[in-house]
Design a protein around this nucleic acid. Structure first.
Lengths: 224, 224
DNA sequence: TCAATCGTTAAAATCGAAAATATCAGACAA
DNA sequence: TTGTCTGATATTTTCGATTTTAACGATTGA
C-alpha cells in the first residue's frame, strides 16, 4: 500500500503553498521585490515553475507585477485594509444568514467542534503560552468557515476564502492579539449560531471585524 | 515617435486575453479539455508561457485542473449559474449604494455617457441589426461599471469585475438577448442613478439579474 | 551644469527538450 | 465473462538555456 501522503503533490503546488504562506504570515514583507533567480535558489525550483505560481498569486492579489519589471509582494495601506475588512463584512455577514437558515445538525456539530478547538487554543494564549501563530489562525479560519459552511454557494465560499486570507495578512502584519475580546466574540457567535439568530451574529461579526481593524491601526503598524 | 501601441504587450499577456475571451465568449466550450500541445500550435506559443496564463485562469475559476491530468474549461451548471448571479446581486447592489452616495458630477457624466453608448447599440440590436456581440457586452459592462465606479473600494470593484465576467460567460452560452426588457431596465437604472435612489436601483438590478437567469434557463441551454 | 545618447549589465520573458506521470489496450488468471 | 496486472503511448510537469527587455552609468555636446 502506498503511503497515505497527499495525492499528486507536485513541486509547483508545494512551492505555491509555501510562498503563499510566507506572504500571508509576513515572512515575505509587503513591497519586497521577488527576483526570480533569488527565489529559484531559495525555494529550490526552476524559474518556469516559479513563474507559474507567481502568476497565480498575481491573480489572487497577493503580489503585483509592474510591466516586465518583475514581481513584488503587494504593498499594504490603511485604505486597502479598510476595503478588505469591509469586503469580509459584506461576504461573511451575508453567508452567515444563508448558513444559519440552511444549517442542519451536522452543521451545528461542525460549528461546536471548530469553536471548541479555537477556544481551547485561545485559552492557552490568554494564559501566556506562546503557541504557533499559524495553528491559531487556522483554527480561527476553521471556526469562521464552519459558521458559513451551509450558505449553499460555492462561489460565495470561494470569494470569502480569498478575502479572508488577505485579511489575515493584515492581521499578521500588525501582530494582533485582541485576547479576551476576540475570544468572547467567538463565544457569542457560537451562541447566536445555535439560536440561528443571524441578526445578532451579523452585529457581532461587524463589531468583531471593526474592532480588529481599529486595534491594528492603533498599533501603528500601518503608517498611512 | 514610437507607435502608440499598448506598452509592454508581451506574448503571454496577449495570449492570456485571447484565451480568456475565447472561454467567456464560448469559443472554447465548457468542459473542453485543454491539451497543452494543441493549444501551443493553436495559439502559437510555447508550453511554458501557456502554463503561466493557464494558471491565472485557474485562479479566476474559468478553467479547472484535475490533479496532474491537465486543464479543462470550467463546466457549467444551473446551480453554479444561480450562485454566480446571486454573487453579482450581492456585490453590485452593495456597490451601487456606496457609489450613489459618493458619486460626483464627474461620475454622473460617466454614467450618462456609458448609458448613451449602450442604449444606441441596443437600439440597433432591436432594429434587427446583428452587431458584434463583444462590443455589445463591453458596453453593457462599461455601463454597469460606471454605475458602481464611485463605490470607493478597489477591492469591491475587482471582485465585481471577476464575477461579472463569469456571469457573462453564462449569458453568452445561452445566447441571450432580452431586448426591450433589458434596455428598459438600463434606462431605469440610469434614472435612479441620477436621482441617487439606490433603493430603487437595487430593486431594478435584482430584477435585471433574476429575469436574465430565468430567461437563460428557459432557453434550455443549461440542462441540469 | 545639465540633458541626451549610447553601451553595458542585470533581469525577465520565452523556448525546446528531458523527466515524471497518467491513460489505455491487451494478456492472463479466476 | 470479469477483474487485475503489465507494458506501450500520450500528456503533463519540470528544467536549463536562449532571446528579449529594462535599468544604470559613462560619455558627449550644449
Amino acid at each position: 500500500m502506498p503511503p497515505q501522503t497527499d495525492i499528486a503533490e507536485t513541486v509547483g503546488e508545494r512551492t505555491y503553498r509555501r510562498i503563499r504562506s510566507d506572504i500571508i504570515f509576513g515572512r515575505l514583507a509587503p513591497g519586497q521585490r521577488l527576483r526570480l533567480e533569488r527565489l529559484s535558489t531559495q525555494y529550490d525550483t526552476s524559474i518556469a515553475t516559479l513563474r507559474e505560481l507567481l502568476n497565480r498569486l498575481l491573480v489572487e492579489g497577493l503580489i503585483v507585477a509592474e510591466g516586465q519589471r518583475g514581481f513584488e509582494v503587494t504593498p499594504v495601506s490603511a485604505e486597502r485594509w479598510h476595503e478588505i475588512a469591509q469586503m469580509r463584512e459584506l461576504l461573511e455577514c451575508h453567508a452567515l444568514r444563508q448558513s444559519f437558515e440552511h444549517g442542519d445538525v451536522e452543521w451545528e456539530g461542525r460549528v461546536v467542534a471548530a469553536h471548541h478547538k479555537l477556544a481551547s487554543l485561545e485559552k492557552k494564549l490568554l494564559a501566556g503560552e506562546r503557541s504557533e501563530t499559524e495553528t491559531w489562525k487556522r483554527y480561527d479560519w476553521e471556526f469562521h468557515h464552519a459558521l458559513i459552511s451551509c450558505c449553499g454557494s460555492r462561489a460565495l465560499l470561494d470569494a470569502h476564502a480569498a478575502i479572508f486570507d488577505k485579511y489575515l495578512r493584515y492581521q499578521i502584519i500588525a501582530v494582533v492579539f485582541r485576547g479576551e475580546a476576540a475570544a468572547r466574540e467567538h463565544r457569542e457567535l457560537l451562541d447566536a449560531a445555535l439560536r440561528r439568530d443571524w441578526q445578532s451574529a451579523s452585529a457581532i461579526m461587524v463589531r468583531h471585524i471593526r474592532d480588529c481593524v481599529q486595534h491594528t491601526l492603533n498599533s501603528g503598524a500601518l503608517a498611512s
